[in-house]
Simulated scan of single mutants.
Amino acid sequence: MDRARTAALAGRCLLWAGLVLPGVCAGRLGLNEPRPLWQQTAGAGVLAVATVLARRCPLTAFALTAALCLADAPALFSLSYGPALAVFAVLLGLRAERTGPAAPSFAAVAAVGTVRIALGGGDPVPPWLVMTGTLLFGGVLPWLGGRYWRQSRELTAAGWLRAARLEEKQRFAEERARLRERARIAQDMHDSLGHELSLLALRASSRWRRTCPNGTGRRRPTCARRPRTPRTGCTASSACCARTPTSRSPSLRPGRPWDSSSPAPPSPGCRCAARPADGRWSRAVSPSGCCTAWPGRR
């Protein structure tokens, strides 16, 4: 903030010095009539006030400068304050928000100059023509230049603002398209994963049903899973399964030792039981309905 204020103050001081310099040079070179010091000081003070008011009240600054020119020369043509009149006309066109107050100010300056020329005596036509030319080329044209400068700046700012909005809108559109693409890919992955998991669950359920058809969750014996033969109800073809589990033979009752009147003991390849070390056997009926042999207890 301090740097901005310092820069603005330095700019105003430079502008004031530039506006005062033509009057000082014209007086030193003898291009103007000799004037007392107080008039030069008053003119410099008026230019300083106009410089201060040029940013916030450009119309007032232009009016003060025009009054200073008319006080110095009835025809408004002054080497000392003419450049200042053109500069403040440019600032009026550049900084004024509306164009309405400018036209009445030009008309007022022309009317005051005409009245002063008429009261001055002599032929009023040449001074009036000079005043009209000075007002036109030193006031109106610079004001139009300032208006053109202001409008070009506004158009440039509006163009950049529109370009920024279009760029932001395009960025939003690209972001939305990217999000839609991500959502589509995520949906495809979700569908594919769900399909694979469903297949795995279906396969696992089918395998579980084939392994445990009774729904108990336990694996049934091998002989119970194989088709039964009409003779014994078991898939084994050894001597241990030669008789049905429901036979009334004492040797086929559960837990009873194997005696010599029973058929031969089961062969080594029988899947229902294994041969014991002491050669004694006993037989029982499994819950699945298949005969099972195991070593008997003495």
Rank of each mutant, 00 (worst) to 15 (best):
T292I: 06
F62D: 01
C25W: 07
K169N: 08
E97S: 12
A111F: 15
G93T: 03
F106C: 02
P36Q: 03
R176T: 04
S78H: 06
R180K: 01
G145T: 00
V109I: 15
A67Q: 03
G120H: 09
A242C: 08
A163V: 06
V49Q: 05
A42H: 13
A108P: 02
T65F: 04
R184D: 11
R248P: 06
P268L: 09
R95I: 04
V52N: 09
T222Y: 13
P127Q: 01
R210L: 13
A274E: 07
P265M: 07
L15T: 10
P101A: 05
G121I: 15
G296S: 10
G45F: 15
T132D: 05
P250C: 11
L144Q: 15
S152D: 08
L193T: 11
R220S: 11
R231Y: 04
W258D: 07
F137L: 02
R210Q: 12
L119K: 05
A7E: 02
P245N: 07
C272R: 01
L144I: 13
L129D: 07
L91N: 12
T222K: 11
C212Q: 08
C13E: 07
G139E: 07
P221H: 01
A177G: 03
A111S: 08
A84M: 00
C57F: 09
L144W: 14
H190C: 03
L199I: 13
G122M: 05
P213G: 03
A86G: 02
G194L: 09
Q39G: 03
R283I: 06
A242G: 13
A242Y: 02
G27F: 12
P295L: 03
S261C: 12
V125Q: 08
A66M: 12
I117G: 13
P230I: 10
S105Q: 08
A8E: 10
A173E: 11
V115E: 08
L199H: 12
S105P: 06
P213S: 02
R256W: 04
A75D: 15
C272L: 15
P101F: 05
